[in-house]
Design a protein around this nucleic acid. Structure first.
Lengths: 202, 202
DNA sequence: CCCGGGCTGTACCGATCGGTACAAGTCTGC
DNA sequence: GCAGACTTGTACCGATCGGTACAGCCCGGG
């Protein structure tokens, strides 16, 4: 029962849906099925540690499924689009990092959240330049993509129409430079290795 | 002292910066300088009524400075850009409506927030079609603009770099159809009538 | 002068907050 | 089967939450 990874995933869902500051310990026990005793056994430092663990989880997932492919892989951009669309359930799910970044947080946490955005932006910038974008265009498109994702999620959530997110994502990705055709576009072998890992929930 | 309008403006700033659910009555008394007695005299229904009053204020300001010009005025889009940039202090300020929309809120409030986004979207759609955009392009650009504003604000806040917002706004506006030159672009008479009213704070 | 009604500060309310203490489980290695 | 460590539920803590009650304050009309 005390599968810490499973608990962290549940916590992630809770904080994503209800926010961190606005989630009480009663919410946490309800969401995880664990009493306070178990909770403080797993996370001796309480709520802040719960959030830190969730962010560790998110960090690791994005690093593996999004940032690293962007930096290293010729298909990184396609993998990012698929992974991000799956992660945010095509707009049905908010961005935990963006959500928490709007709450009142201490400086250390604020820097951590800012660093997450920056890693994404820089990795995407690298991928765009690798596709032939100029430095200016790459910087612009990378920033625009992050804003489109966050804005698409806010709008999708606020209006109750998840499809807004998919449109926002496709709109900006449609402006990326086409893959240089010299890479001759051999259709990827049917190996399953590139399907994104399941996003960390449910 | 009990200038209700001034109190509402202070409340707006507070909720914008700290969120609604995460602002305690102690925060409210500190921000307004008013004791609980005065607060509950002005707002007998407590915090929910304070938020409603702030939203009334925001609604009225956007209706007057943004939505109405978009619907009626040939310069509506330019006025929107100026007003929005001023309102959000070029990225230094969050969007109260977007902020609250991410918090756990009851259905009535959620619908009100959704309606605000929708009024903006529809008014902008009208203005874009009046400039010659096709129905599809206008719908797309209107939605993209709202997402760019929200995303730009989230990103600006999270990274601590307000300039991100201005870039996001200019990027999308740069894609609008140019004003049809047949309107012969008589430079507006130097009347001061079109300068946006001061955003409702400080 | 004082009187009466809008303001305003403050003491207080029950509920809930995050967190702690600890006793009773449950499981593992011998 | 027993010992000892790991887990877990629960009672409880002081602080703070949103909200209420109310006693004074201020100020204009008689």
């Amino acid at each position: 029962m005390a599968d810490r990874a499973a608990v962290v995933r549940r916590l992630g869902e809770l904080f994503r849906e209800r926010g961190y500051a606005t989630s009480s310990l009663a919410d946490v026990t309800a969401a995880t099925g664990l009493g306070r005793g178990s909770l403080y056994h797993l996370f001796p430092d309480g709520k802040p540690q719960m959030l830190a663990a969730v962010l560790d989880d998110v960090d690791a997932w994005f690093e593996r499924e999004v940032f690293a492919p962007l930096r290293d892989d010729g298909d990184g951009i396609e993998r990012m689009v698929d992974a991000v669309d799956a992660y945010f359930r095509s707009g049905g799910r908010l961005c935990l990092v963006g959500r928490v970044a709007l709450e009142p947080v201490d400086d250390v946490l604020a820097r951590r959240l800012a660093a997450w955005f920056d890693r994404w932006r820089v990795a995407l910038d690298v991928a765009l330049r690798a596709r032939g974008a100029t430095a200016d265009d790459a910087a612009d498109l990378a920033e625009e993509t992050l804003a489109a994702v966050q804005g698409g999620l806010v709008l999708a959530h606020a209006t109750g129409d998840p499809a807004v997110f998919g449109r926002a994502l496709r709109r900006v990705v449609g402006r990326y430079p086409r893959r240089p055709s010299r890479s001759s576009r051999i259709p990827a072998p049917p190996a399953a290795a590139t399907s994104p890992a399941a996003p960390p929930t449910t």
